[in-house]
């Protein structure tokens, strides 16, 4: 018996190595995939498909969706404007305390967004450390405005962009910048025409991450900007509040958010980052 089993075992292991299926990796991978996809599938199963059309066309959904798309895009634009130079500073200059600054930049990544919202309120609120003067001098109060939504989203989403762009900047061969300098390019021209194009994939990946994070932002938004339909009630807020009154409506809103984010992510990744 043992003798006859040898050739068979040999044959089987030969076939296995030819197939090259590392089950130790595949099984947990499938498990992980299921874990991520199943809850979304649950949304689809429980969706009130018959009433879907009417709900989708309601002004409430449209307002929340437009507000979400608009503020997430604005937040991404602001993050690019402020975050790319910040990433450059972190990657390219050796100012003292740079490590501390980098740690500070990443804090919003680990901070619960609600805490971020509280912090924003304490600083930029009508009664806040800085907001107080803004209110005294101009009569303008940031909380409860659409601008406050953008501010909250920038706070939680910009670190994603900064981290991504800083990584890309560190990966760039700096001698290209030296080459540009010998050709007469000022530092600003070097940055604009050489550095930036070379880190473009990193910037775009960071912008996509940043936009996604802003679109899903809830905690800091509700804390800092409050909740008012059409002005500060973004999709996640609408989902949360509808859940207390009508779970069906909340599911519809969630589906819309899901569909839009998947669509945008697929389009962006295909077109710009070239990863399918």
């Amino acid at each position: 018996m043992p003798v006859s089993s040898f050739p068979e075992r040999g044959r089987r292991s030969g076939r296995l190595s030819a197939g090259r299926v590392p089950w130790l990796l595949v099984l947990p991978a499938l498990l992980g995939l299921g874990f991520l996809v199943l809850p979304l599938a649950g949304l689809l199963v429980r969706a009130p498909w018959s009433a879907l059309g009417a709900r989708l066309l309601s002004a409430g959904v449209r307002d929340a969706l437009l507000l979400s798309l608009g503020t997430a895009t604005a937040a991404t634009a602001v993050s690019l404007l402020l975050g790319v130079p910040l990433a450059w500073l972190l990657a390219r200059t050796g100012f003292p305390g740079r490590r501390v600054v980098r740690a500070l930049v990443t804090v919003p990544l680990v901070l619960p967004p609600v805490v971020g919202g509280v912090a924003l309120l304490l600083v930029l609120g009508r009664n806040g450390v800085l907001g107080r003067y803004l209110y005294e001098w101009t009569g303008y109060s940031l909380p409860f405005t659409t601008a406050a939504v953008v501010v909250a989203q920038v706070f939680v989403a910009m670190p994603f962009l900064v981290i991504s762009v800083e990584g890309a900047l560190r990966g760039v061969d700096r001698r290209y910048e030296e080459a540009a300098a010998t050709l007469g390019a000022t530092r600003w021209t070097v940055f604009r025409r050489v550095t930036l194009p070379m880190v473009a994939p990193g910037v775009l990946a960071g912008a996509v991450l940043c936009w996604s994070r802003a679109l899903g932002e809830f905690g800091a938004t509700i804390m800092f900007a409050g909740n008012f339909p059409g002005r500060t009630q973004t999709m996640p807020l609408a989902v949360y509040l509808e859940m207390q009154r009508s779970p069906e409506a909340a599911i519809v809103l969630s589906l819309v958010l899901l569909a839009v984010s998947v669509l945008v992510l697929v389009l962006l990744r295909d077109r710009w980052t070239g990863t399918p």
């Binding site: 061969d173 001698r175 290209y176 030296e178 080459a179 540009a180 300098a181 010998t182 050709l183 007469g184 390019a185 000022t186 050489v194 194009p197 070379m198 473009a200």
Partner: peptide, 20 residues
Amino acid sequence: PAERRPVGMVFQDYLLFPHL
């Protein structure tokens, strides 16, 4: 600074800008 010198330089692996 480098950008204000009447100098042209050819680098070891040329460093042509790949995006241009």
